[in-house]
């Protein structure tokens, strides 16, 4: 007797749960983003069709992608042990010339989104983002707002009395970082604890003392404004800037996340 079918069933269940979760994110982001972004050209919908919920994430890649080496990829490859070769993916199926740049659509976004928008998402080059995985969920962080990727070497020191999403303090070579259990912070309803599941990397948010624990570094992609379904102002997830359907990942709103963390931290007397 083999337990292979059981394992497969379990893996399928996890896939389904994750797929559902990402779908919820996509639906939420799409639903609230529709109104403020009415001035945006509808080209995104045509070029980046939303995949069916039952389809695995891996099958939802855009039809035409060009892969090339990038300095940041080389750097990450040299400095980190990663589970898969890093590649920079440039979404080329949206002709830049067709994107109608309208400043008003950016102004309608929340201040956090506006801060992200100040990265000039509408530039023809787009913004390089690092994709990493937390409990199966793919997250993207813009490289200009990436403080660093740290390989977990020393243990994280837990501090008593802290919120469940705080793993503790970690002493890096140059900085002391407060490590966030990304799964607990981003999807508490899943009751996944990275302290149990394990983690391999810390994603430092900008130059802040905060870092997200993650399990896998996937690759880097270049995202342009219209490849992202921006979340609306009324979103209940301040950490979410939007979703990238082509990559089936959530784009992290770094300023929004930092604000959320700062709001939840109290000054010590």
């Amino acid at each position: 007797m083999s337990d292979q079918p059981l394992k497969t069933a379990s893996a399928n269940q996890v896939d389904t749960v994750l797929q559902d979760y990402l779908d919820q994110l996509l639906v939420a982001a799409t639903a609230v983003a529709e109104e403020p972004l009415t001035s945006a050209p509808p080209v995104t919908e045509k070029v980046q069709p939303q995949p069916a919920a039952s389809e695995p994430a891996e099958k939802t890649a855009p039809p035409a992608v060009a892969v090339k080496d990038a300095p940041v990829v080389t750097y990450l490859q040299q400095n980190l042990h990663v589970s898969a070769p890093l590649q920079e993916t440039v979404i080329t199926d949206t002709p830049v010339a067709e994107v109608d740049v309208k400043e008003s659509s950016v102004e309608e976004l929340s201040p956090d989104i506006a801060a992200l928008a100040s990265l000039n998402w509408r530039s023809s080059q787009g913004i390089d983002c690092l994709i990493f995985k937390v409990a199966g969920l793919k997250l993207a962080i813009p490289l200009p707002l990436l403080g660093g990727v740290h390989n977990v070497t020393d243990k994280v020191t837990p501090l008593f009395g802290q919120a469940v999403w705080s793993l503790g303090v970690w002493q890096g070579e140059n900085a002391k970082l407060t490590i966030i259990d990304s799964a607990q912070l981003i999807m508490p309803e899943r009751h996944i604890r990275l302290s149990d599941e394990g983690y391999s990397f810390f994603i430092q948010l900008d130059r802040s003392p905060w870092a997200l624990a993650c399990q896998e570094i996937c690759d880097t992609v270049t995202l342009v404004h219209d490849s992202i379904k921006w979340r609306g102002e009324t979103s209940k997830r301040p950490w979410l800037a939007g979703t990238v359907i082509s990559e089936m990942c959530a784009l992290v709103d770094v300023p929004g996340l930092l604000k959320l963390l700062e709001e939840n931290s109290r000054k010590r007397a």
Binding site: G161, Q162, A163, S166, Q171, K176, T178, S265, R266
Partner: peptide, 20 residues
């Protein structure tokens, strides 16, 4: 060094700081 205090519990305030 001080660390961000993200504690909901009363015990979080016992921590004066950390040092490597």
């Amino acid at each position: 060094e001080t660390t961000p205090n993200v504690g909901n519990e009363e015990s979080a305030k016992f921590i004066q700081g950390v040092c490597h």
